[in-house]
Amino acid sequence: MSVSISELAARLAKAAADRTPITRLTDEFPELDIPMGYRVQRALRAETEAIAGWKLGLTARAKQAQVGVDSPIHGFLPAAGALDIGEPLETSAHIQPRCEPEIVFVLGRDLEGPHVTATDVLAASSGVAVGIEVLDSRFVDYGFTMADVVADNTSASRFVVGTPIPAEGIDLRLVGVVFEKNGRVVATASGAASLGHPAAAVAWLVRRLAAEGGGLNAGQVVLSGGLTAAVPVGPGDVVTATIDRLGTLELGCC
């Protein structure tokens, strides 16, 4: 490739810093594939001071089929991306923010290994919570290929996590999910929307990280995959994610 991985990472970082989207990288560099995309993402991670955890993307089977892949993708969560409960999202600090509801796992202990299953994930989690992820693609109008979006850290930007509760006795597959914007229901789902079971999605992540010699650390959070389509937000909007048994989380935008 005529351009270095670090150069591509720098372009993405600059787009975020300038709040100016760029055209997708694969237009200029058609040789950029998904493994190279992950190398760009790792270069971005190396420049990030602290990591709060991880996130999954493309966990809906229907969406995977649409783009012709059969596995999810993952990205990292910069600690600086965390919004506190009640803290508004400053939309002017972003390019084109979109929100989606998530089930969030909070790790109670380290978890790694190539054979980790959903059961291990549940056992290692100190709690689960309702979350809202704010996506903000660095590409014009979210126009990207898989390799592009992997390089762009799966559009990760901000996130907010509600109060975690123990997962014991909750069938996360069946919990109802209601996503509202300005008081209107925009989408519903159940937990199964993420890879059939959100804990299975996290287990996939752990196995994937194991292949790179990594894992999850105690205290990290994992956003287990958007449960509905992402909703664009602007100043004055309020989005509300309600997940049965986990509670409600609201994010106001200014």
């Binding site: 089977r61 919990v175 937990g191 059939g196």
Partner: peptide
């Protein structure tokens, strides 16, 4: 919450 499967494969979810 609701899951709909066809021949064991998840088709859609809702609430």
């Amino acid at each position: 919450g609701m899951t709909l499967t066809r021949n064991g494969e998840l088709v859609d979810t809702g609430a």
